[in-house]
């Protein structure tokens, strides 16, 4: 029992469960899942589907944060990648061709990677502070995206592209499988190889790890490039959801939500140790919180305040002080036994 109570993921999970319980009490239909045609339908399914872009971005953010960095440019990269993909498909004579769509997605994600690599170059090679290095692209990126779409909102009709965010496989949204695949891939690469440990080493003490023979420059560079790839793919999912490249709204403020998700999941902003499972829970917590606003019918004027208060409560629940309090309570029986022993 004690082991369960003091597990580092206990509190993030508790926060998520509490949110789901509150929603279910407010409206029991929250947990209902019905079958519509060949697909499952319900609030929880919507959360799985809509959380996919944030999931991808947060995974990238987590890797960057664990190297003691931060990536503010993810929203702008999303806007660029969506703009690139839709402009290519819009200009092609065969928008419904699978090859066209895959090509467009490939190029868009590649550009996401290049933008991430540019961030990585500034941070790892040039030595610019991560917050400044990525701020450059955060501000300039949307301008680039607007340039690509010519200042318009590009809209397309393309069945394969629509499938990315709106399609269903064995009853579940395809976007959900994309986020599962991303989680699995990141967990596999970071946890089944030494890369995760090396990344954490760089985050905990870059100088010491360099002296120990870790190639910190390449690892940091790679972290930003990975974040760029994931943000690029998130941009595809986002634009596929509305079949429109909206350069101003795509991924707006997502960098802040991603940082929040990573921190809620228990990864420290000081770098070092990171937890993939924690980030996944953090993402679902934020997405559930967003639907809570709808489900409780919070008026739009106070919705931001509601979100802020909820986040403060969740962060408070997870604070180390409160955590040690819980630990002490869990160990409550122990001092007595030791006294007896004395």
């Amino acid at each position: 029992m004690k082991k369960i109570l003091t597990h580092r993921l206990m509190l993030p999970i508790a926060a998520l469960v509490a949110l789901i319980v509150i929603n279910t009490i407010a409206r029991p239909s929250f947990v209902s899942v019905t079958v519509k045609g060949d697909q499952l339908y319900g609030p929880l399914i919507d959360i799985l589907r809509n959380s996919a872009p944030l999931m991808l971005v947060s995974l990238g953010m987590m890797i960057v944060i664990s190297t003691r960095g931060i990536d503010l440019s993810v929203g702008a990269i999303m806007a660029v990648s969506g703009a690139v993909a839709l402009t290519i498909i819009d200009g092609s004579p065969t928008p419904n061709d699978l090859g066209t769509v895959l090509g467009a997605i490939g190029i868009a994600v590649l550009i996401g990677m290049l933008l991430g690599a540019w961030n990585g170059f500034l941070v790892a090679v040039v030595g610019v502070q991560p917050i400044i290095a990525t701020l450059v692209l955060m501000l300039a990126g949307r301008g680039v995206a607007l340039l690509i779409t010519g200042g318009f909102i590009t809209t397309i009709n393309s069945a394969p592209y629509k499938f990315m965010a709106q399609g269903y496989v064995i009853g579940l949204p395809f976007a959900f499988f994309v986020s599962v695949a991303a989680v699995a891939l990141v967990a596999l690469i970071e946890r089944r190889t030494a890369l995760g440990v090396l990344t954490e080493a760089v985050g905990i003490n870059p100088e010491a790890s360099r002296l120990a023979g870790v190639r910190s420059r390449g690892i940091i560079w790679g972290a930003y490039a990975a974040s760029g790839v994931l943000a690029g793919f998130a941009g595809i999912l986002y634009s596929s959801n509305t079949m429109a490249a909206d350069s101003n709204a795509a991924g707006l403020y997502i960098e802040l939500y991603a940082i929040l998700a990573v921190v809620l999941g228990g990864t420290s902003l000081m770098g070092g140790k990171f937890t993939v499972a924690g980030t996944v829970i953090g993402v679902f917590t934020i997405e559930t919180l967003r639907s809570t606003i709808l489900f409780l019918g919070v008026p739009s004027a106070v919705a931001p305040l509601f979100l802020a208060v909820a986040v403060v409560i969740v962060v408070l629940i997870q604070s180390p002080r409160l955590r040690s309090l819980v630990t002490r309570t869990a160990q409550g029986a122990r001092p007595n036994t030791s006294e007896v022993a004395r």
Partner: peptide
């Protein structure tokens, strides 16, 4: 029944409407 902001964007309109339909 309900009124909520969708921020004048397609994505906002879609997400809020999904919520309304679930509710």
């Amino acid at each position: 029944l309900d009124s909520q902001t969708g921020d004048f964007t397609r994505d906002g309109g879609k997400k809020v409407m999904e919520g309304f339909l679930q509710k």
